[in-house]
Design a protein around this nucleic acid. Sequence first.
DNA 1: CGCACGCTTGAAGCGCGTCAAAAAAGGTGG
DNA 2: CCACCTTTTTTGACGCGCTTCAAGCGTGCG
Lengths: 217, 217
Amino acid sequence: MQTATAYATRRDLAPNRPMTIASPAVTFPRTYPTVTFNTGAEIYAPGDKAGTFYQVEFGAVRVHRLLSDGRRQVIAFHLAGETFGFEADRTHSFFAEAVSQTGLRAISRPANDEASPELLTLALRGMLRAQEHIMMIGRQTAVERIAGFLIDMADRQGGLEYFDLPMSRLDIADYLGLTIETVSRVFAKLRSSGLIKLRSIRCVEFKKPEALRSLCA
Amino acid sequence: MQTATAYATRRDLAPNRPMTIASPAVTFPRTYPTVTFNTGAEIYAPGDKAGTFYQVEFGAVRVHRLLSDGRRQVIAFHLAGETFGFEADRTHSFFAEAVSQTGLRAISRPANDEASPELLTLALRGMLRAQEHIMMIGRQTAVERIAGFLIDMADRQGGLEYFDLPMSRLDIADYLGLTIETVSRVFAKLRSSGLIKLRSIRCVEFKKPEALRSLCA
DNA sequence: CGCACGCTTGAAGCGCGTCAAAAAAGGTGG
DNA sequence: CCACCTTTTTTGACGCGCTTCAAGCGTGCG
């Protein structure tokens, strides 16, 4: 098992991936005032006209889609400071909802799309994030997925001693392609083996960060 | 079960996704001559400097990464006419290899990234493709994944009466997060129930396209 | 208080993975 | 063209990890 560093050499066949992707430090010209969404409130839905995108001021957002029989797949979470809502098509193809009380700053997409290196950077970053997500749910076990998820969440919140999970167990399950029961069981397992501590139901503290990282495939 | 059309209304809670994403009809300024890669040849590897990207002239490309214990996840296949290789970072984070004898046209990324709406379009399309891939492997059964995969491949090759799969069963398995045995069994099942015909091991013909589509969640 | 909601825990089942071996396909040299 | 080998694919038997189904538990709020 290796440390979670970037790829050192091109022949490094089995590296750990750098899951955390730097959050954007970008400012946009045509920005609108912050709008607040209550827990569960819908930000956009499939079929809605795209064109504006959003920067999270506070709170968190989940982006997802439902299958015909009700199965739900969460595509992404977006935390404070992150940007989302840009689409390849003219309309949205997912739902976006506030996971908790959330403030968003709407940003209008430049009319002709030209001269927008910021947006390109965000799009490429979004692609990379989705690809890392595929790595996570494609071939990894439940424990590996949750360990990776917790580390990702911690890193994205600034790597504090402890951090809050803004989303429910069900949201996590639907993000990782698991059931809520499995998520709960893995949390219990990580807790009982001393890797994490649950200060409260949604507040996680890493007791053995290295051990947790070593669980990531 | 609904037809695989785009989202009609914003309250359409459980639509089938438009899996096929239109292939780019884009031409680039600084283009280099076509280079041919043999089956299995490496195009780039993690750690390689990014900056140029590629348009597939003929053949097919797989993009993947390996986990520490050898598990492999294929992130994407790229067929003739499609473009790949752009990255958020300065270096690549995946392997790209020729699935079969493949011709590529290298394209240098504009130095300052400005005024490049084409690249933005490609990045957004790549993001959408990755997101659809997440939908596929996150919550769907083996049969659903393979049905969706076959339909996607058919559409991307122009929707002919029959089409070739350029990649092996193992490649398909690693793309869908399954094992080669499961892929083989599902192919056998689809064949024995008359939904598809295998003209040869890698040549597929849809006998009941609607039935196949109805398998997609 | 008592209901509602989110979370946890237990028991049983099943879909897919694993292991093993045979069959088919493809390539090479005579 | 055939004999021979390698690689890919298929098929079978069995086991495991996760899901499913079903209660229990905790916490917050009317």
